[in-house]
Write a protein that binds this DNA or RNA. Structure first.
Length: 347
DNA sequence: AACCCGTGGTT
DNA sequence: TAACCAAGGGT
């Protein structure tokens, strides 16, 4: 009798699992430790559409600053947003605080996938992942890695996103009742290092003998993806407004909705992914052109002009004067950090 | 359901 | 180098 797919994969995982800070080697929180679900949840939210390498320093900073969910629940929105600055997809940070407060209020994380799914920032993937990894529940955990591995394993050639139903059913069919969390992480490790998007390493794959995609000859062609859309080019202007001979700079907080929502930022001319900015500054004066920075978003590429003015006037609208020497602590998203760096380089 | 939302590494 | 891609969620 041949070993099952899950047995093969778990045996491979026992030998090849990555050592990651949110997993459970000696000296770290263990399953059963009250801090364990918190660390699993935090890492899973950070890892949404974000690479392991990018997450590591943020995860370390967060668990150092806020060791448990009660500590995070007590943090200010501004502090959490600033700590998240640079990681991207800032709605995650807004939902992170909401979720922490809801969890703290109810005395801990719920242990079932269905209850976890109701928390802000937890969709189908994250609810399943936390239920499986933190609470040992059987759950069908489907992220982009699992989608790719399963589409190949079962030779599912229907294009995404339509293929998701079949992929999920196939993933369900191979998910074991025991070690469900390890199984999920094993599929993800396999997808990130062996069954990679462009050049799958079938020769070292523990599932190669069972892989219908490989037997058909072109596993790298699966899953079939929809055609990509053209990314528009946009232009905008950011304003570096200082007083006291450049010692303080005017910062605003962006609206909670929309791009870079809730983040501290330089004032700008209203550019968006849908339209160019007006170019109009928030106050009249002898503006100096400093050049431009370029930044790529998922759905638009932006060229952001940077202009400078030292003034005695208070700009229109809400905002605050921020010490320039502490600009690194303002929590600027990468786009505005680039603009600030340009302004300071030309000072 | 289709679209919006960041960033940095890889090829 | 430009395109591709990543442990997706909200609306």
């Amino acid at each position: 009798m041949t070993a099952s797919i899950s047995d093969n994969l778990l045996a491979w995982y026992d030998r090849n699992a990555r050592d990651l800070p949110w997993r459970n080697p000696p000296g770290r929180a263990l399953p059963g430790d009250p801090a364990w679900p918190y660390r699993v949840w935090l890492s899973e939210v950070m890892l949404q559409q974000t690479t392991v390498a990018a997450v590591k320093p943020y995860f370390a900073k967060f668990v150092e600053t806020w060791p448990d969910v009660a500590a995070l629940a007590a943090a200010s929105d501004d502090d959490v947003m600033a700590a998240w600055a640079g990681l991207g997809y800032y709605s995650r940070a807004r939902n992170l605080v909401k979720c922490a407060r809801a969890v703290a209020a109810r005395g801990g994380f719920p242990a079932t996938e269905a209850e976890l799914r109701k928390l802000p920032g937890l969709g189908d993937y994250t609810a399943a992942a936390v239920a499986a990894i933190a609470f040992g529940r059987r759950a069908v955990v489907v992220d982009a890695n699992v989608e790719r591995v399963v589409a190949r394993l079962f030779a599912i050639d229907e294009p995404l996103p339509g293929a998701r139903r079949a992929i999920r059913a196939a993933a369900d069919s191979i998910t074991p009742a025991a070690r469900s969390g390890d199984f999920a992480q094993a599929l993800m490790d396999l997808g990130s290092h062996v069954c990679t998007s462009r050049a799958p390493r079938c020769l070292i794959c523990p599932l190669a003998a069972d892989c219908a995609g490989r037997l058909q000859g072109a596993p790298d062609q699966l899953p079939v993806k929809p055609p990509k859309k053209v990314v528009p080019q946009r232009t905008g202007t950011a304003f570096w407004i200082t007083r006291a001979r450049g010692k303080e700079v005017w910062l605003v907080t962006r609206p909670a909705q929309g791009m870079l929502g809730g983040m501290r930022a330089l004032p700008d001319d209203g550019w968006s992914a849908q339209a160019d900015g007006s170019g109009k500054p928030p106050l009249a004066g002898d503006w100096q052109r400093l050049g431009a920075v370029r930044h790529g978003f998922t759905h638009a590429h932006l060229t952001l002009e940077v202009r400078r003015l030292d003034t005695l006037s208070r700009p229109r609208g809400e905002g605050q004067w921020w010490p320039v020497e502490k600009i690194a602590e303002a929590g600027l998203a990468t786009l505005f950090a680039k603009a600030a760096a340009l302004a300071l380089a030309k000072a």
